[in-house]
Design a protein around this nucleic acid. Structure first.
Lengths: 212, 212
DNA sequence: GTGCGATGTATCGGTCCGATACATCGTGGC
DNA sequence: GCCACGATGTATCGGACCGATACATCGCAC
């Protein structure tokens, strides 16, 4: 999962570890707290060893020949390679049970603007299936096994059940939206292009303007 | 976390691994999928080595002296020891950052009927604080950094924000309820008017041995 | 009688987390 | 001047937990 997220972010711009973590937190803040460095750095090393990312030269053309004594050691900027992009495309397109779990789904969803519509639909439906099953499990629990459990546990189940129902409804909306409005998705791939690309797909059905 | 959950369940009745997993899934189904055997068995071993659980004799008092030829080796039933109960009491009472994360909070909450009220309150408030912070992070993201993110990521954040707001409201209710001294919840929900069981924290110390 | 799903115990490799260590840089207080 | 402190930045280690896998027994349907 981390691998997918890192490759996805580095596809937008080269970055060093610290920055990567912040972007990761921004993009995935809704589904997980914050990536640990104990995961991040080893993973970066693994990706580099696999040839999917490389260290970029950090020296800007504005040359100063001063240092070399202090052996400027600091940020290590990584950029994605061609093989890395291939790898990302492969990871983002493949679906499976781990794609439908909480974390897996979240990461995939966060990169939906780089995912083709057929895959998006498959993932949304797989996720819905998964949540529906969890929901049924909780319903059974609250029905049949209720008297075996104490009031706090029941309350926890009830709250979880409500969350499931809510998520299913959310997914239904997204699926309907996906089916009706076709999405161009533009697999960007502006390899050497500008740092900013703007290929926003049509928004997933927004009708709310809420005031807190 | 697993350690706490196992000790908590074995306090209700002796069990073997397979059964433990099912009970774990029933009790924690709202917050995590299903415990893996790759976690469960090593943890059981660890707890046994620490002296908190022991293997129980599986012979029920209704003695038949028949076997011993087939050397019945199969299920291994574990039961909690006195030290284990002490350990559980210590774990359930101590609070900290890991108590407020998704999994930690869920496990603690599931054993709230064995937790004293002051601790319950502390945990609920800590959890609320944590979720409020997550909520503020998402709000900021949706406000300030909105144009940096694509529509799908924004939708993910929006959904996450809503979940946070909902959970804070849920926690508020629980806290208010807790302060007023009432047992947990029961909004309306109509099903089954009757089975009102008392599970406020049973005064100090004795566990109920219930027959499944 | 035989296949098959549920029950049951167990290990292995891998991912990720939390704690910790350490070094640099800019800024504001004294 | 200087120095404390928080942000930036890289890195490792032990441990928790997962997913896949292996294997053995039991009851039951066909």
């Amino acid at each position: 999962m981390l691998e997918l997220a890192i490759l996805g972010l580095l596809q937008e711009a080269p970055m060093h570890g610290y920055e990567l973590r912040k972007e990761l937190t921004a993009k995935l803040g809704a589904i997980r707290a914050a990536i640990s460095y104990g995961s991040l750095y080893p993973t970066l090393r693994r990706l580099q060893a696999a040839g999917w990312i490389t260290e970029a030269d950090e020296t800007p053309a504005t040359a100063e020949e001063v240092p070399a004594l202090t052996s400027r050691r600091g940020r290590v900027v990584y950029e994605i390679t061609a093989e890395g992009k291939e790898r990302f495309a492969q990871l983002i397109a493949q679906t499976g049970p781990e794609t439908y779990g909480d974390t897996g789904f979240g990461v995939h969803f966060a990169f939906f603007s780089r995912t083709d519509q057929a895959t998006r639909l498959r993932i949304l439906e797989g996720r819905r299936r998964t949540i529906e099953e969890r929901r049924e499990g909780l319903r059974d629990m609250l029905g049949r096994a209720a008297e075996r459990l104490d009031a706090y546990t029941l309350e926890l189940q009830r709250h979880g059940l409500e969350a499931c129902e809510r998520e299913v409804r959310w997914l239904e909306e997204l699926i309907a939206n996906e089916r009706s409005g076709r999405a161009p998705t533009v697999p960007d791939d502006g390899t050497a292009g500008g740092p900013r690309q703007d290929n926003n797909p049509p928004p997933p059905g927004e009708t709310r303007t809420e005031r807190p």
